[in-house]
């Protein structure tokens, strides 16, 4: 089993979100960068768990980004990836990025794992695009993943419930909560990661379908209206008459 895990770099979940250059650029000053939590906690850790069950499993990591991304790639290697490839590009067009990953993934991988979305762009689109480029099945928002008798058995969120699906390989799966338990790298992993291969390749020729032209922040909230704790029924009145929410 050869697994390709897609790793994206995102600002930490507590990062202050602001923009510079007339609202065209994310203000990275003082921002901590992390592996996108969905990629790390669910996609990568599940791949590692599958390898722990079957030691012949190979886990490769792929990142599309510039050399500032190497710190989070090393961290992913410390958690348990075998080797990594970074496609040197600063594009943020989902189609361009999916093309880069598909160009690597078509080279004999059985399973491509992504997080369900990145916490910065909230696109949730790379996995489906890779699948279409590979003409493979795609299971989105998966909560469970096992391998039985040469097929993937995948649990996924469905309308108001869950589905359990059996799918042949090659397969692309986007992963979310439930898939695996988050873990932290241990010292042995960190030492080993220093010498694991991290290849850098230039991007393949691709079109971009979209361009981000600017950012904006939502208007500030007007401020909370506090209701005395001894008259909570007033809340219900305000929700009906003022907010028209009930």
């Amino acid at each position: 089993m050869k697994i390709l895990v897609c790793i994206s770099r995102t600002p930490d979940t507590t990062a202050k979100i602001s923009f510079t250059n007339q609202n065209t650029t994310f203000n990275a000053e003082g921002v901590q960068w992390i592996i996108n939590p969905y990629d790390e906690w669910y996609a990568l850790v599940r791949a590692i768990e599958l390898k722990e069950k079957d030691s012949t499993t190979i886990i490769h990591l792929i990142n599309v980004g510039n050399n500032e991304n190497e710190a989070i790639i090393r961290k992913a290697l410390a958690l348990g990836g075998d080797e990594a490839i970074r496609i040197n590009s600063e594009s943020n067009d989902p189609f361009f990025i999916a093309q880069q990953i598909a160009a690597v993934a078509k080279d004999g991988y059985d399973l491509v794992l992504t997080g369900k979305e990145t916490i910065d762009h909230n696109g949730s689109s790379i996995g489906g695009m890779i699948a279409e480029l590979l003409d493979a099945n795609y299971i989105s928002l998966a909560t469970k993943l096992d391998i039985e008798n040469g097929n993937a058995i995948v649990g996924r969120e469905a309308d108001g419930g869950e589905e359990k699906i059996s799918a042949p390989f090659p397969l692309v799966v986007s992963c979310q909560k439930g898939m695996a338990e988050a873990r932290i790298p241990n010292m042995r992993g960190i030492m080993a990661a220093r010498t694991k291969p991290l290849k850098v390749a230039e991007a393949v020729q691709s079109e971009s379908f979209t361009a981000v032209t600017g950012f904006d922040l939502p208007p500030a909230k007007a401020g909370v209206k506090l209701i005395p704790a001894d008259t909570p029924e007033l809340l219900v009145k305000l929700l009906r008459e003022e907010a028209k929410a009930i």
């Binding site: 979100i17 916490i119 762009h121 032209t213 950012f215 904006d216 922040l217 939502p218």
Partner: peptide
Amino acid sequence: VFSGKAFADV
């Protein structure tokens, strides 16, 4: 974008 903390024009 940014989990509801901002908007992007694409």
